[in-house]
Amino acid sequence: MKKITFLLPILFVSILGFSQSKSTAIVSFNADMTAKFTLDNATSKVTLVLTGTLDKWTSLGIGTSSSTISGDVYLFTTAVTDNTTYTNNPNGEWNTISNTVISGKRTVTLERTLTNSDLNDLQMAFDTTNSIDVVWSRSGSAIATAPNPNRGSTTAVFTTNLSVDDISFYDAVTIYPNPTSSEVFIKTKTSISKVTIYSQTGALVKTINDIADSNEINVNVNGLQKGLYIFELQNDSEKTWKKVIVN
């Protein structure tokens, strides 16, 4: 019984705290240029979606707050005279996934690994990268006179993306009434095959197995002492937990 008491809180932390990806908001540098970063823990990749117009140079310094401090660099240039284009990725770390033009607006999707073995390169470990400094510039040519309103720096902040797999079962379950003194009704969009009830300290109270994979069941709590209980709900592939108060 002690093992249940110690393991149950750990399970709650791991289930509720797990996330596969996190992204910045779309960062608008000016009317012509935006960027969005996404870190994917499952694939160990960072994706950058960069937008801009066709007739301007687009330069992005990633992981730096100043053009004089080293960081990843991505440069997209356009020769205004003949409308030819090319990209420059000096360190060869970013791979171009797509490069599309719609209504005079270019969208480039780039990808690189979060980390590598070269400590001189920018490292973007998933667990510790919560923000990223960026410097940017937009110009009609490689030479721009100061002061230039089309250049600057900013810090983009990452927020967690809760995937469908992370939250679907938990959010699909509704338990009511809560608090209750007699019975609770459990409704879910997916079928439930087993319900296990634990006390607040983690002691096993009751197990209900004869559910026949129903998505709507009721559980009698008559006879249980007043207090907080943890309902462990299980379907064919997942488990989730809900708190129920008996009064």
Rank of each mutant, 00 (worst) to 15 (best):
G223E: 11
S139G: 15
V135F: 00
N116G: 08
E183D: 12
L114M: 12
D171I: 05
P9G: 08
K242H: 05
L39I: 08
N218E: 10
D72H: 00
S199P: 03
L162I: 13
T160N: 13
L11R: 09
D171T: 13
V184D: 09
G61L: 15
N30Y: 08
I69R: 05
K187V: 09
T51V: 03
F6H: 09
T107Y: 00
V221S: 06
N130H: 06
V221E: 08
S98I: 04
D32F: 12
S98C: 07
A142T: 08
L50P: 02
W57H: 09
I26L: 11
R151L: 12
I192H: 04
I217E: 04
A144T: 10
E111I: 02
F185H: 11
S28G: 12
N88A: 06
T174L: 13
T47S: 10
R151V: 03
T196M: 03
I26A: 10
S237R: 08
V205L: 04
I167F: 09
N99M: 06
T207G: 02
V80K: 14
V157G: 00
I208H: 09
S237T: 15
I10V: 14
N161C: 04
A156W: 05
T43L: 03
W57I: 07
L54F: 03
G61I: 06
T128Q: 05
K187R: 13
N89R: 07
I192W: 04
T240L: 10
T68S: 15
T77L: 08
V205E: 11
R138P: 00
N220I: 04
T201R: 02
I230H: 05
S214D: 08
L204W: 05
E216K: 09
K56D: 14
T160M: 08
V108T: 13
S139L: 06
T81G: 03
E232Y: 02
A42D: 12
N215H: 11
K239A: 05
F6A: 14
D127V: 09
L233V: 08
F29I: 07
M33E: 13
S237W: 05
A156M: 08
I197L: 12
F37N: 00
L54Q: 11
K189F: 07
G152N: 09
T24E: 06
D171N: 15
G52I: 00
S181Y: 07
L39R: 06
E232N: 11
K194N: 15
I208S: 07
P147E: 12
S131I: 05
V134G: 00
Y176C: 06
T43G: 01
T24D: 02
T159W: 03
T180R: 07
S237K: 15
N222M: 12
N247G: 04
I143G: 01
D121A: 10
D32I: 03
G92D: 05
L110M: 12
L162H: 06
T174P: 00
T196R: 10
D118M: 05
D171K: 15
K56L: 13
I97F: 01
Q20D: 13
A31G: 08
L110W: 00
I197P: 01
E232F: 01
N218G: 03
N116W: 01
K56C: 02
S98F: 02
S214G: 02
T180I: 11
N83F: 11
W241E: 03
S191F: 10
E183N: 14
N235I: 09
Q200S: 14
A203E: 14
T154Y: 00
